[in-house]
Design a protein around this nucleic acid. Structure first.
Lengths: 154, 154
DNA sequence: TTGACTGCAAAGCGTTTGCAATAAC
DNA sequence: GTTATTGCAAACGCTTTGCAGTCAA
């Protein structure tokens, strides 16, 4: 079963941390969606309820919660980092680098590879949230030439 | 055969761009190693030869060269971006998030998966330079408990 | 009561920008 | 001569920090 934000708060307490309105809100916001949210979006949504919350608090708590394993942090590259409560099974993302569309795929395809790395290199790959870049079907269709951005060849 | 930086310069000219000492140096520095280098390291090495080169020039040229496909850009997440001339066959990286050790692996393992994405989703994944995070053998061995960083549980 | 936590303002970091001067063609 | 390219300085966006005041336990 999926953990509610209340469960997560209980775990926080058990680990010796305090429950503050800011943390409650943060976890509530994270809990009410399936999606991963950026620190900025989280700050916005938290502030929609409690406008005085400071961004440094959001950053500090996201770091803490991620470190404790209560939430997870997905790095999409190019400086885009997003957070989510990990309820649903691990999944990966196909991110279109043109239109930023995101296709979620389950992680079964990678299970063998992951196992292989452990066998061969002793390396335990964290394949919870791979972000793979590329071009989605639509953008591939629209893209006229390979490199449409040569100022000199236009 | 591997392309030398001279070949790359020739391609630049063919595409209508100018050959400047800065570009020559940048490509020479990139060409003299197999490794991927950060913009900062590249600036350092370029400046070792020609101290007046400006960082904005390095950034602008890295972007240009990557866009033209003359070099490639690997995003290791956490804001770490590195560049390399792509001579050797595509490869991926197993990056230890503890000690930052890097294991290079070839990309054969991913060929099937990549093909699968194209079939299933029409998504053309750019799997030139995956960076997979995790824990290397040594760090897994050293790590006493799962979460060694609970200030409250110490 | 007490120290974990917050809000604020300021700094940090890698990267990007506008612009006048320069140099490749 | 033309204009792509450079160097510089300033701004950028996101994140982090130090610190004094606050509030959960």
């Amino acid at each position: 079963m999926t953990e509610t934000h209340t469960d997560l708060l209980a775990r926080l307490v058990k680990l010796g941390y305090r429950v503050t309105p800011q943390r409650e809100l943060l976890l509530a916001v994270l809990g009410e969606t399936d999606k991963h949210l950026s620190a900025e979006t989280l700050l916005e949504r938290v502030r929609a309820v409690y406008p005085r919350v400071n961004k440094s608090v959001v950053y500090r708590n996201l770091e803490l919660l991620a470190q404790l394993g209560l939430i997870s942090c997905v790095d999409f590259g190019q400086g885009r980092v997003e957070y989510e409560v990990h309820h649903h099974p691990h999944h990966h993302h196909l991110v279109c680098r043109n239109c930023h569309a995101m296709i979620e795929i389950n992680s079964d395809a990678f299970a063998d590879i992951q196992h292989g790395f452990l066998e061969t290199y002793g390396f335990a790959a964290e394949m919870d949230h791979l972000a793979l870049f590329g071009l989605c079907r639509d953008c591939r269709a629209q893209m006229p030439v390979q490199l449409s951005h040569h100022p000199h060849t236009l």
